[in-house]
Amino acid sequence: MLNIKLKSWIDGQSWFGETVRAVTKKKELPSVDFNDLAFKLATAENISETLPGVLKSLQWLINDLFPPAQHAELIILFSNPSTSETFMHHGLDKAPAAKLMQSLHHLFTVGKAPDASEMMVVDDLTIAPSRLFEHDNLTVWSLFLFHGAAPSAKQLKWKTASIETTLYKGLQAWYHNESKLKKALESERAMYAAELHDSLAQVLGYLRLKSLKLDKLCQQAEFSSLKPITEDLASYTQCAYHQTRELITSSRLTMQSDNLSQGVINSIKEFEHQSAIVFELDNRLPLNMLSPQQSMQMLYIVRESLSNIVRHSHATHARVVLLLKTSSLLQIHIEDNGTGINPEAARSDSFGLQIMKERADRIGATLMINNRPEGGTRVDLSLNLEANE
């Protein structure tokens, strides 16, 4: 006769409760309000300041989700292949190594983006990438870095689902808000540019023609005593007209305020259409670490330099170089093969070089303008990023 003992089974809810208690018996998981973190991201005025704080809160949770042997870290990466720019954010006490950041830049921005479902090994670290969202030329990635043995893809997804959902909701909402704000600003700038063109620019254009005509009439002997006055009047009116036209053009710049590379590219295309000069661009900026104010001021200096080349240099070739000389020193070099510059011969009504130096001073940059030994002019613009933090 068989003696069969029936095993008593507990219901699913009781099993789940006991499992959770067993997992959290030694250490309670930190309390994280995911909705609050998503709201902070969605309403961020400066994502570069808000995102690291959110990631720091999530990093505390990650430290408890994974054992110390795995040593998991989270990085958010913004990739824009069209401008070769990468922005990385983290909530770690110590920033990732420069070599790792360079490798990630080449992997996610310069090269072909990896498969979001496959883990990879980069600089002795196991990295699990996940594409949060993609709009236009911008792709936002979450990267989990493991210094030790990495969990399985299923285990990782199960543990980090709430984290990724929070980041997706918050960053997606922030991006949509930024896009709306950008369109509103562009519309407002276009309106002001149109009003400036239809009012002040038209008046200055008329005064420019009349002042030139008056200056020519005063070349006659009977009006020779008025010649110095009419000459100054014609020169200053001409200068005011050109500056107004440049202001209109600048207000119509179609660039993100923090995207220096794209602004330079657009400017070179614009000035190429205005002349027969061959422009060459060497863009070696792996990361754009400039604030909107720094980026815009540097772009204005570049544009003024390009304008001077087109109007005054008589050059056939010009070269623009953007690079990070060191991890904290950004440099821009602009040179041409024209006639060069003579500072002593500059007109008293020419304010271009003075304005360029003032713009450099506003952001703590160094501006040098010199003649090239082989002929032409060289403009060197340097910005120490650490000194301007």
Rank of each mutant, 00 (worst) to 15 (best):
N63Q: 13
I277V: 12
L330H: 00
G364A: 04
V20W: 10
S225I: 10
A184V: 00
L138R: 09
T249G: 03
N308S: 12
L200K: 13
D11A: 02
E270C: 03
A276W: 06
P30A: 08
K99Y: 08
A276V: 05
T316R: 13
S225A: 13
L353K: 03
N80F: 02
K40F: 03
N370C: 05
Q102G: 09
A97Y: 09
D349T: 15
G91M: 05
L207Y: 11
Q294N: 01
D232I: 07
N3P: 06
W9Y: 08
K7D: 12
G205R: 03
S348C: 04
Q274C: 00
S235R: 08
V121T: 15
D258L: 05
A190M: 10
L65D: 04
P292M: 00
P114A: 06
L41I: 02
W158I: 13
M356R: 05
M119N: 09
P151C: 01
D349S: 15
L330D: 04
H242Q: 12
L138D: 06
L253C: 11
L323P: 00
T339G: 08
K269R: 10
N337Y: 00
L290Q: 03
F223P: 12
A387L: 09
L138P: 05
L51M: 09
H106M: 04
Y206E: 01
Q172P: 00
K40L: 12
N80C: 06
P96A: 06
F108S: 04
R189M: 15
A387P: 08
S187T: 11
R131L: 15
H242N: 09
L29H: 04
A150R: 08
L233I: 03
R319Q: 15
P52G: 10
D282E: 13
